[in-house]
Deep mutational scan, measured.
Amino acid sequence: PDLGLTQLFADPNLIENLKKNPKTSEMMKDPQLVAKLIGYKQNPQAIGQDLFTDPRLMTIMATLMGVDL
């Protein structure tokens, strides 16, 4: 199971919303991170391994779920 990750990354406004959010806007200036996020739309399971190697993803996930870290 993808634990709902498919829906989190399926939002067509995902990148724009993250660019507008004060907690994630600075991160979204990294083209490699943006490319990763776009890739998760097609393969949400890929985030599982990346969560352990890129701490920014935890902040992004929390933001998408509405959790304040």
Rank of each mutant, 00 (worst) to 15 (best):
P44S: 06
L18M: 03
M28G: 01
K36P: 00
F52Y: 11
L69V: 13
D30V: 01
D2A: 15
V67G: 14
I15G: 01
P22S: 08
A46S: 13
D11R: 02
D54A: 00
Q45F: 07
L14E: 02
N43M: 04
S25P: 00
L8K: 06
Q45E: 15
N17R: 13
A10F: 09
M27K: 01
L8F: 10
V34D: 00
M28S: 01
F9E: 01
T53M: 10
Q32S: 13
F9Q: 01
G4I: 15
K36V: 08
P44M: 11
I47P: 04
A62N: 12
D54R: 00
G66T: 08
P22F: 05
Q42E: 15
L3A: 14
D50L: 04
Q45N: 14
Q32I: 13
Q49W: 08
P55Q: 09
L3T: 11
L51K: 04
K23S: 09
D2V: 15
I15N: 01
P22L: 05
L64E: 01
D50H: 05
Q49F: 12
L64C: 03
D54H: 01
Q7D: 11
M58E: 09
E16D: 09
G66L: 08
F52G: 10
L18F: 02
M28C: 03
Q42R: 06
L14G: 02
I15F: 06
Q45G: 15
F9N: 01
E16N: 10
K29G: 06
F9P: 01
L3F: 13
K23V: 13
L14P: 01
I47H: 07
D11Y: 02
I15P: 01
N13F: 12
D54I: 01
T6F: 10
L57R: 00
N13L: 08
M65A: 09
D11Q: 07
P31E: 10
L14W: 05
V67A: 14
M28I: 05
T59S: 07
T53Q: 13
V34N: 03
D68W: 01
P22G: 04
L8Y: 10
V67K: 12
V67F: 14
G48V: 15
M61G: 02
G39L: 11
P31I: 07
Q45W: 07
I38H: 08
L57Q: 01
Q42Y: 11
R56Y: 05
K23I: 12
T63C: 06
M27G: 01
E16L: 08
N13W: 06
E16V: 07
L69G: 14
F9S: 02
G4E: 13
K29H: 09
P44A: 08
N21C: 06
D11L: 02
L14Y: 07
I15H: 02
G4R: 15
G39E: 15
L3M: 14
T24E: 00
I15A: 02
L5N: 06
A35V: 07
N43I: 03
T59H: 11
P31N: 08
G39R: 12
